[in-house]
Nucleic acid binder design. Structure first.
Lengths: 197, 197
DNA sequence: GAGTTTTTAGCACGACCGGTCGTTTTGTCT
DNA sequence: AGACAAAACGACCGGTCGTGCTAAAAACTC
């Protein structure tokens, strides 16, 4: 891998760290360049525009989420085990990757839910895809047969709610019992789904 | 009410509208002044600093939430009826006050969860208080007696999760079925709590 | 209606923003 | 080792930001 690709990766990685704290739209080139001992223009040369950098950062978060959460799930047997591993990994992701404080998706969702553009599209597309993955996994929960489609969406909705509440309790309130509450909530959701058919 | 107080209210109201879209930290004085046909310095004179304006905006959101959600709840008989009205109003709040697109609390939570200061303190304090209110209301759910404290917190957690997921589905995905999913989730949470004792 | 206080506008400041440019350094390949 | 391309630099642009200062205009008081 050439020098250019190396520093580009370093830039995106550092920008991801920063974006979690100041937001994706709050990214600013100058301080980011200082972090990496780069000049602002030297950094900028790697991306034709700020939006390109933001898109790269968001895509990096998507890749990490896929590697850390989705793929391990697909390597686990279908059914409840897969679903539980997926959610467990998701909780870990919210608590923060090593050194990374928080979840970029939640931050960007608040910034770009009503701001049209490429960032909005990439964010919504990836999140929608994850939501559909969750629903697909929910179908395998009952032993008696596949869960109906509308109930799969309901499960995906409720699991997402547990994760979002977990994040609020963890990041905003610093509540020590957050994970316990979340696990309890998820267990009941999965139990109900498993016994629904 | 004097002229000063009138325009000050108009400023805060307009600033609240803007803050929901661009964030509380993303507020900028110039465009805000233009909205109100005021000069930037004329607007600024009403607040000693930008942070003072931001605090006023956040406090205004708290006041509106209290008037629109909390107080109607307290005027409803204790028990499930009160809880359901509270949550119902909360959903309405998320869908957006007349003309106001979205919930400032969710936006600000992502911006200020790790940024110390007066805004963080006001936000966390008010949200924590609301969480405790929810838990207190949950105690009256069972007919057989008050719900134990830890289960009240669990109910508050799960209801919050439903509301957060509802917001994501509504604002980010524009999902038409969001409210139906949310109502289903809440109904099951309240049913379980009612039969727990 | 005169006088006082409050409210507003105009202007300027220093800092920072994303982005451009020409130049110099560094890496890579033969 | 020399040639060429890639990468990084530093100065700079127009613009916007929050924030003071001063004076005019408007609102309130008696």
């Amino acid at each position: 891998m050439g020098k250019g690709a190396t520093t580009r990766e370093a830039i995106v990685s550092q920008a991801l760290d920063r974006a979690v704290q100041v937001g994706l739209s709050g990214l600013s080139l100058g301080p980011l360049a200082d972090d990496l001992n780069l000049s602002k223009s030297g950094l900028f040369a790697h991306f034709k525009s700020k939006e390109t950098l933001q898109l790269a950062v968001l895509q990096e978060a998507i890749n990490r989420f896929t590697a850390r959460v989705v793929e391990p799930g697909l390597r686990t047997p279908r059914g409840r085990a897969r679903m539980e591993l997926l959610i467990h990994r998701w909780f870990d992701w919210i608590e923060g990757e090593p050194g990374m404080r928080g979840c970029l998706f939640s931050v960007a969702a608040q910034e770009y839910d009503d701001r049209p553009g490429a960032i909005h599209d990439l964010l919504v597309g990836s999140q929608l895809q994850w939501q559909e993955t969750l629903a697909r996994m929910a179908a395998d929960l009952p032993r008696g047969g596949p869960l109906p489609a509308d109930m799969c969406q309901q499960v995906a909705f409720e699991v997402t709610g547990s994760v979002l509440a977990f994040q609020q309790q963890t990041k905003l309130f610093k509540a020590p019992k957050a994970r316990a509450w979340a696990e309890t909530a998820v267990a009941r959701i999965l139990d109900d789904a498993a016994n629904a058919v």
